[in-house]
Design a protein around this nucleic acid. Structure first.
Lengths: 237, 237
DNA sequence: TGTGCCGGTATTGTATACAAAACCGAGGTG
DNA sequence: CACCTCGGTTTTGTATACAATACCGGCACA
C-alpha cells in the first residue's frame, strides 16, 4: 500500500500525462465525487495537476469521446448528464452485450480469474461496510469490466467499459433511494456459476442482474429540475 | 452537385475544424485511399488544411479513439493495422450487435427510411459499375450504419459505426481477392425484409450477411509480410 | 563487410501568447 | 420593474515557440 493509485495528485515529481489526468477524473466520476453537470475548467484542472491547458484539453477530449463529459464549443467541459433516453439505451446495450460476454467468460475463466473476481467482491463488501458508497460503486462496475476482460474480447470489453462508465453517471442521476445496493448477491452467484464453467447459468444470471439494475432506475421524468435553467437548455449549445 | 462533400480541402475560405479534418481522414480511410500503416504527419496534414498542428492533433486523437489510427508516443500517428485477432473480434462483435439491430430497425422503419436505404443501394451499384471500388465500399458500410440509425439506438449505433470503420481497415488488409463484392444482393434482401416489417427475417439475413463477410476474410497468417520489419514489430512502441 | 557510435535533422510533446467568444454586472430606457 | 445594451472580465480556441525525443546519415573500428 505504499503507492496507492487513488492518491491525490498533490505530490509533485510526476509530470502527469493526459492519460493520467483522464483516468483520475474518470475515477472521481465513477466514485460520484464529481457530480453530473459540474464544470471542468481547463485552468482549474491544469493548476491541480501542474500541467498546461494543452494536456488538460487532451484529457477532456478523451473523456468526451467516452461520453463522460460534454464539451460545448466556447463554453467548456462539463461532467455529462445523460438523458433518460440515453439511460435506457445504455442499459439496453448492456443487456445485449454483457450476458453473452459472461457466457464466454465462464467458458474461459481460470482459477486465477475466479480468485480475482472473488477478491473484488470482498473489497466491494468491505467498502460498503465502511460506508464508502462511491468506492463500492466503482468496484461493482470494475467487476463487470473484469468479466468482459476474462471473456478475452477486447473490442467488446472496450464497449462494456464505456457503458459501465456511463452507467455510473446514470446511477448518480436516476437511482431510486428505495432500492438497496444488494447487487453483491448477484455478483456472488455469477462468480459461482463461472467457477463451475456453467456458461448457460452465467448468461442468465448476468441478464437478470442487468435487468434488475435497469429496473432500479427511476424511469419517470425527474421531478427535481436541473440546478439551473441554463443547464436545462444546454442541449442547444 | 455544386458542393460535393468529397471535395478536397484545397479551396480555402473555411478554417477547417478538428472534426472536419477527422471526418475527411476517416473518409479517405474508408475509401482505401489511405492504406493501413501510412504515416500521418502533423505538419503535412496541417499544411493541407491550412491549420496549425493544434487542431490536427485533436483530429488525430479523435481518430485514435476509434482505433482508426495508432499513435505512438514521440513517433507520430499511423493509419491503424488491425491484427488478425482484432479482425476476428470486430466481426464477432458485429455478429452480436447488428442482427439484433436489424430486427429493431425492421420494426421501426418508415417508408422514408426504406427509400433512403434503396437510394444508398442504388448509389452503391452505380459506384461499383463506375469501377470506384473505394466509394462502393464506403457506401456499403454506410448502409449498415443507416440501419443502426433507423433502429433508433444511438448508443449501439455509435458502436456499430466504429466497428464498420475498423472493418474497412480489416478489409484492406485481409480481404481475399477471390471472393467478389457481391454483397449488394444481401443488402437488397435486407431492405425487402425491412419493408415488410419482418424483423425475424431481417435479423437472420443480417446475421448470415455478416458471417459471409467474415468468412470472406483471409484468416490465415498473411503470406505477404508487412511493408517493413519496423511496422511488423510496432506493437512494442 | 558489418556493427556500433555520434552528430545533425526532422518530428513530436508541452508551454505560452494572442485572438475570439461567452459570461456578468452596471447603467440606461421604455 | 423589466428589458436591453454595453464594457470589462473570464474562459476557451488557435497559433506559435521552445524542449525533448526519435530518425538517419556518416564515420570509426573490429
Amino acid at each position: 500500500m505504499n503507492k496507492n493509485a487513488d492518491d491525490p495528485p498533490g505530490q509533485r515529481k510526476a509530470p502527469a500525462t493526459a492519460e493520467t489526468i483522464s483516468q483520475y477524473l474518470s475515477l472521481a466520476i465513477h466514485e460520484h465525487r464529481l457530480a453530473p453537470g459540474t464544470k471542468l475548467g481547463e485552468d482549474d484542472i491544469g493548476e491541480i495537476f501542474h500541467v498546461s491547458r494543452t494536456v488538460v484539453r487532451a484529457a477532456l477530449q478523451s473523456l468526451a469521446h467516452g461520453k463522460l463529459v460534454d464539451i460545448h464549443r466556447n463554453r467548456g467541459a462539463f461532467v455529462a448528464q445523460p438523458t433518460l433516453r440515453e439511460a435506457q439505451e445504455v442499459f439496453e446495450a448492456r443487456e445485449l452485450l454483457e450476458p453473452r460476454t459472461a457466457r464466454s467468460a465462464a467458458a474461459r475463466a481460470t482459477p486465477e480469474d475466479i480468485d480475482l473476481l472473488q477478491r473484488h467482491i470482498a473489497e466491494e463488501h468491505a467498502a460498503l461496510a465502511a460506508g464508502d458508497q462511491g468506492r463500492a460503486l466503482r468496484l461493482s462496475g470494475q467487476f463487470h469490466i473484469d468479466i468482459s476482460r476474462i471473456a478475452d474480447q477486447s473490442t467488446i470489453a472496450g464497449f462494456v467499459e464505456t457503458l459501465i462508465a456511463r452507467s455510473s453517471l446514470i446511477i448518480a442521476l436516476y437511482w431510486r433511494r428505495e432500492s438497496a445496493l444488494c447487487e453483491s448477491f448477484a455478483h456472488h452467484a455469477l462468480v459461482d456459476a463461472m467457477a463451475q464453467q456453467d456458461g448457460e447459468q452465467a448468461e442468465g444470471l448476468m441478464r437478470s442482474h442487468i435487468v434488475d439494475l435497469h429496473s432500479a432506475l427511476d424511469l419517470r421524468e425527474k421531478a427535481a429540475p436541473p440546478r439551473s435553467l441554463r443547464d436545462a437548455l444546454q442541449p442547444w449549445g
